[in-house]
Amino acid sequence: MIRVVIVGCAGRMGCEIKRLLSQQSDIEVVGGVEAPGHPQIGAPLGSGTIVTELSACLTSVDVVVDFSNPVTVVKNVNLCAEGGTSFITGVTGFSAEQLRTIRDAGRKIPVVWAPNFARGIAVLSRIAMQAAQLLGDEYDIHLIEIHHKKKKDAPSGTARQLTEELQVVTGRTEIPVVSIRTGDVIGEHQIIFGGAGERLELIHKAESRSTFAAGVLAAIRWIIKQPAGFYSMTDIINF
């Protein structure tokens, strides 16, 4: 049985993850964490309760799944590194220093960070890198990302990751990104390769957060078998 604690358990992603994990025979949710003052503090979650600090529910935990915020993630990954607990997060909007801290934790424990847990995004990335290499410098590259109007960071973490990967492959110093925040769009990423007389467009649309939750489930089952390291969805899918 894999024992899991969910940080940010009452948020959009936290609720999707709770729902999916509760249906698994090999996973036990042993507690959750939410911000002080949240109305669900003290409520039951799995075999435990919802508390305000991860340290209060880390006993005999195999994996911490954190969908809170950058500051909380940094604090929690350090706590997990001290105790030897595997750590998974999909939070975005980190500063360079915060991301270095998370990477450094991977020297002590297995850490999975994925701005997007959808399997299709990992495939989109692989195809886009191949397209960039095949099309060459004669093609312009642009990225458009669309999310719901409550999303705080722009560009999205997924867009940042895709543009960084494209920069490495192409040697370009910048890949232009257009960010749109509107309605309740869960997530859409479009990579455009524009050449003379033609245009190639690669699009991924997330229609439900259950897609991301399924990726988190795969990450939970995968991470408990791994040594210390800093991993991504590409590692989990194992292209």
Rank of each mutant, 00 (worst) to 15 (best):
Val91Tyr: 00
Ala56Ser: 12
Lys149Tyr: 13
Glu138His: 10
Thr234Ser: 11
Asp235Pro: 01
Ala154Tyr: 07
Gln24Trp: 03
Val73His: 05
Val168Ile: 13
Pro176Lys: 08
Lys108Arg: 14
Thr52Ile: 12
Gln133Lys: 12
Ala218Ile: 07
Arg126Glu: 08
Arg107His: 11
Gln161Lys: 14
Gln130Trp: 11
Glu138Trp: 09
Ile6Ser: 01
His142Ser: 15
Ala228His: 03
Ala219Tyr: 02
Trp222Gln: 06
Met233Asp: 07
Ile144His: 10
Gly136Ser: 15
Val111Ile: 13
Met13Tyr: 04
Leu200Ser: 07
Asp66His: 01
Val178Gln: 10
Glu201Arg: 09
Ala128Ile: 06
Gly42Asp: 02
Val168Met: 10
Gln226Asp: 05
Ile192Pro: 02
Asp137Trp: 13
Cys80Asn: 08
Arg103Asp: 09
Gly31Phe: 01
Val4Gln: 03
Ala213His: 02
Gln130Tyr: 10
Lys150Leu: 14
Phe212Val: 04
Leu21Lys: 04
Ile17Gly: 01
Ile27Glu: 01
His142Cys: 14
Lys18Pro: 00
Ile144Asn: 10
Trp222Ser: 09
Asn78Ala: 15
Thr49Cys: 14
Glu82Val: 15
Pro155Trp: 07
Glu16Tyr: 09
Met1Leu: 12
Gln133Gly: 14
Gly14Asn: 02
Leu135Tyr: 05
Leu20Pro: 00
Ser86Trp: 00
Gly83Asn: 11
Arg181Pro: 01
Cys80Val: 13
Gly187Ile: 06
Pro36Thr: 03
Leu135Gly: 04
Val185Lys: 02
Leu135Met: 10
Ala35Tyr: 10
Ala96His: 06
Ile2Glu: 05
Ile186Val: 14
Gly14Phe: 01
Met13Ser: 07
Val123Thr: 07
Lys149Val: 15
Arg119Tyr: 12
Phe239Ser: 10
Asp140Lys: 10
Val91Lys: 02
Ile192Val: 15
Lys151Asp: 06
Val91Asn: 02
Ile50His: 00
His189Cys: 08
Ile102Leu: 15
Ala218Ser: 11
